[in-house]
Design a binder for these strands. Structure first.
Lengths: 122, 122
DNA sequence: GGACGTAATATACAACAGGGAATAACGAAA
DNA sequence: TTTCGTTATTCCCTGTTGTATATTACGTCC
């Protein structure tokens, strides 16, 4: 499992001076943000919270808390964990999770466009 | 000096699920954000970092560091401090500071519109 | 039944941001 | 010269946040 580039705020940064961050809120505050989305994608890729966390240089505990927060705030489960069994189990994304990721990236892309348009106004 | 409402993230929150925060970047990272702008406006109102900080329930130390960061990253000074003298001195906004505040609020208003339009797309 | 690797959970530890308090410097006004 | 309230600066303390570590639970495969 190769280590992937750690998420940093710079990935949110536009070329010029205007910057920002977006989230989708839930009942407990943040429901989905950039970091959580990356985590979900890594879980999809590795099928394991443990491996996903390691690939982001994030502690398992933190990753698990994020996943738990996401699931608690979603009507339908976003990720489903299997414990025990061959390989010890694992975690997979639900169809609802895929839809949530798509929704966030659309929001994110629109926001990048917004930042660009703001900078053009200068 | 009456205590004013402390800034909280909720002031950034839109009615529905889409939320976000914006900043204007400088050479050291954040140059102007929501909290810094409120601080500048309080300084304009009170003519004093001490009073401005108290009105926001922010420590003087923190307020001074923010002001210092703002001035360091701006070509022209944003706030000018006078030390000593009757009343101990004070701090006032420069014309450049006024322009910076206007610029940020415009950016902020555009962003609020953006959030609203995103929510309408749902 | 034992091994394996993961989820789930608790506890202790480290790092850091920010708060609070203390102090010196400052300079006009009385 | 003394007074005054502010700026500027330092030091210590605390709360929070996340890390590291250890332990238990789990279920399939050998």
């Amino acid at each position: 499992m190769p280590k992937k580039k750690k998420h940093s705020c710079k990935e949110q940064k536009s070329s010029a001076g205007f910057r920002g961050r977006i989230w989708i809120d839930g009942s407990e505050g943040t429901f989905l943000g950039y970091g959580r989305i990356v985590l979900l994608e890594r879980i999809r890729e590795y099928g394991s919270i443990t491996k996903a966390a390691k690939s982001m240089e994030m502690s398992y505990r933190h990753a698990w808390e994020l996943v738990d927060s996401i699931n608690r705030q979603s009507g339908k489960p976003i990720v489903e964990a299997v414990t025990g069994g061959r390989g010890g189990g694992g975690t997979r994304l639900t169809e609802e999770g895929e839809k949530a990721i798509k929704l966030f990236w659309k929001f994110h892309a629109d926001f990048q466009d917004f930042l660009k348009s703001e900078e053009k106004k200068l």
